[in-house]
Simulated scan of single mutants.
Amino acid sequence: MAEEDPKPLTYIPEVILKKRKVNELAALRRKEQLELRKLNSKKNKDGFIKLPEEFVREYRARELDFVKMKHRIKRKRTALVPSKSKLIFIIRIQGKNDMHPKTRTLLYKLGLSRVFSGVFAKANEHILGKLQRVEPYVTYGYPNLKNVRELVHKKGFAKIDKQRVPLTDNNIIEQELGKHGILCMEDIVHEIANVGPHFREVISFLWPFELEKPGSGLQGKKSLYKEGGDAGNREDDINELIDAMN
């Protein structure tokens, strides 16, 4: 059997070789940047790796938060809602550096997983109990119709299959809430503002409102609003804060 002629070597143009080299260098740089980000994530604001004392300090702060939460539970509750209002709007105003895990869990159950997120809730003793536990981290009050409407129209998103979906089409609303007679944005506004019979279904349908950091109105204080701080019940004054964050 005759020997086959050797196959000629495949010629690779120089421009392709240069491109390969550039891609390899880019991949190497990306890997170095990733390693650098991982290293920086272990550092604090001053650029130093956390010392054991700092971990101890954070642990003690979280435990202190838990003790304070238990004290707030024992404290005599003040009246939450005047007879004129059945609706409250709750805004998370603090982070989680010194927060006990149980406090964080309660905030998540309220739908407040992020700082400057907000939710509507029905004003009753049940919600008061939750708010009392997380009081330093939230502020709340009685939104007026204007702010209910503007929040829904400006910041309203649907929660469908755990996804954040913009409310750009009334068909989305009709598909999810049509069986309750809620067909459009104004129906949602009406149901929330009046705490209607399908209030719970509407709130479950809406994604928590993601608000803007206000230029003014918050001082970074965990003390109560009525004592000169940021937290707790603002009653009708919540509308000024909503205006600044919407």
Rank of each mutant, 00 (worst) to 15 (best):
F48R: 11
I173M: 01
N170P: 06
L167E: 02
S83F: 07
E58S: 10
E210K: 11
L110V: 01
E54Y: 07
E24K: 15
I127M: 00
D243N: 14
K179A: 12
I93M: 05
K154P: 05
P13F: 12
K179G: 09
N233Y: 02
R114I: 06
P52G: 06
E210D: 12
E4F: 13
K221A: 11
K179T: 14
G196L: 04
E135N: 09
E150Q: 11
L25W: 07
S216L: 09
E35D: 14
N194P: 06
E135T: 06
E14C: 10
V81Q: 07
E191F: 04
E212F: 09
K38A: 12
L25Q: 13
L183E: 08
L34V: 08
L177I: 05
K159R: 13
E14W: 10
E58R: 10
I91R: 00
I172H: 03
K102D: 14
I91C: 03
K154Y: 07
P82E: 03
L145F: 13
T105W: 15
L183H: 12
L128P: 01
S117Q: 07
S85Y: 08
N170V: 04
I242M: 04
V15Y: 13
M185P: 06
A231L: 04
L36I: 14
F209E: 02
R77D: 12
V148M: 02
G156P: 01
I182Y: 00
M99N: 04
H71R: 15
R234E: 02
E186A: 10
H198A: 07
G232M: 03
P136M: 04
V148Q: 00
E135R: 08
A244L: 08
I192Y: 02
P136D: 02
K154F: 08
V81R: 06
L107D: 01
I49W: 10
A2K: 15
F116S: 05
D169T: 05
I127F: 00
A123Y: 00
K18A: 13
S204L: 14
F205I: 05
Y11A: 14
M99E: 07
G141S: 05
K226M: 11
Q132F: 06
I88W: 01
R37H: 12
K154T: 12
A231G: 04
V189K: 05
L17P: 05
P143M: 03
E227Q: 14
S204A: 15
K86M: 03
M245F: 05
F89G: 00
L64E: 14
N194E: 13
R30C: 12
L224Q: 07
L206D: 00
G229V: 01
A27T: 08
V138N: 01
H180W: 09
M69I: 06
G215L: 09
S85G: 07
K18V: 11
Y225G: 03
A61E: 12
C184F: 09
N194I: 07
S216E: 13
S216N: 12
D187E: 06
E212L: 10
G111W: 00
L36V: 11
W207G: 01
H180Q: 09
E4D: 15
E125M: 10
H198K: 09
E227R: 11
K42L: 15
P101A: 06
K74E: 12
I192F: 02
D169H: 07
L145T: 13
A79E: 14
N124G: 06
I173P: 00
V56A: 14
L9C: 12
E125H: 09
A123W: 01
L34F: 10
S83Q: 11
L17W: 07
M185A: 14
K50L: 15
